[in-house]
């Protein structure tokens, strides 16, 4: 099983996530978007699709928006097939933003253009460690994980929607994969800095109703090696590594 790590212009956590996946036992190939654009069918040679964090196209006109446009214009068909065949897809940070803006997340039955990752409530980019709680969801990525800690590093990560009662609807559909939590592992209830960006329902990560596609703002790929949490006593758990292992195991099955 090989994982395709897609490298758009401005992607910058491509090596981070590739290292994490390799450490978790997987194999990765970094592919520039230009090559996938020429041959979209290449995608179907891979068992997993990873859209890493970064600033694709410099976040011009909104984070992830122009990358989402590339998805629609150049390889919509291949990606839809990949998703429908229930192969695992992981979008982290900028990748999550792109998945939301293409409408792949949360996906049916939810309508496109009704969700967004908007500017953080405090208005700034912010880098800090957060605690995450894996909710009961359909996600194959968070199976057996209670929670874990890892950094966030984004300016546009406030999960928002124009739909009424949307948190409840997402929960019922099994789409809320990860929530921001406090030090007792309970939902942050919107309180800063446990919920660092003001996301509704403390939502940090969303999956589709089939559970194979996961998007999340935090960076589990920066919390797998022992030195990454060494100066953060009390924050280290192995959930971040297990998330990648889950994806690899699922892809192999």
């Amino acid at each position: 099983m090989k994982a395709l790590v897609l490298k758009a212009p401005g992607t910058n956590r491509d090596y981070d996530v590739a290292e994490a996946i390799e450490y978790a036992g997987g194999t990765t190939v970094l592919l520039p978007l230009s090559e996938l654009r020429e041959r979209p069918a290449l995608l179907l040679d891979y068992g997993m699709l990873v859209i890493p964090g970064g600033f694709s196209y410099g976040d011009a006109l909104g984070a992830g928006k122009l990358l989402a446009l590339d998805f629609e214009c150049f390889f919509a068909e291949a990606v839809m097939r990949f998703v429908e065949e229930k192969r695992p897809v992981l979008g982290i940070c900028n990748g999550f933003q792109a998945l939301i803006k293409t409408g792949i997340l949360p996906g049916a039955p939810f309508e496109r253009h009704t969700f967004t990752l908007a500017q953080n409530a405090r208005g700034n980019f912010e880098c800090r460690w957060v605690r995450l709680r894996a909710s009961t969801s359909n996600s194959i990525w968070t199976r057996g994980i209670e929670g874990f800690s890892c950094p966030v590093a984004h300016g546009e990560g406030r999960f928002a929607s124009s739909l009424p009662n949307v948190v409840e609807s997402l929960r019922v559909a099994g789409c809320i994969a990860l929530e921001y939590a406090n030090e007792r592992g309970e939902p942050a209830q919107g309180s800063y800095p446990d919920n660092p960006n003001g996301s509704i329902g403390d939502i940090a990560g969303i999956c589709n109703s089939d559970g194979n596609v996961l998007g999340l703002m935090p960076h589990p790929e920066n919390a797998v090696f022992p030195w990454q949490s060494a100066s953060m006593p009390g924050w280290a758990e192995d959930g971040a590594l297990r998330l990648f292992r889950n994806g690899i195991e699922y892809a192999r099955s």
Binding site: N12, R13, Y15, D16, E19, A20, G53, N124, F125, E126, C127, R128, W129, P151, A153, H219, E221, N222, F225, W227, Q228, A230, S231, M232, P233, G234, W235
Partner: peptide, 26 residues
């Protein structure tokens, strides 16, 4: 300092802010 991404590249061992509350400058 939090407006700077100090975690990208995954190699930051002693971070600008560390400790049990993640706010101790180093």
């Amino acid at each position: 300092v939090r407006r700077y991404d100090y975690e990208v590249q995954g190699g930051t061992v002693v971070k600008p802010f560390a400790g049990p509350e993640g706010d101790a400058p180093q």
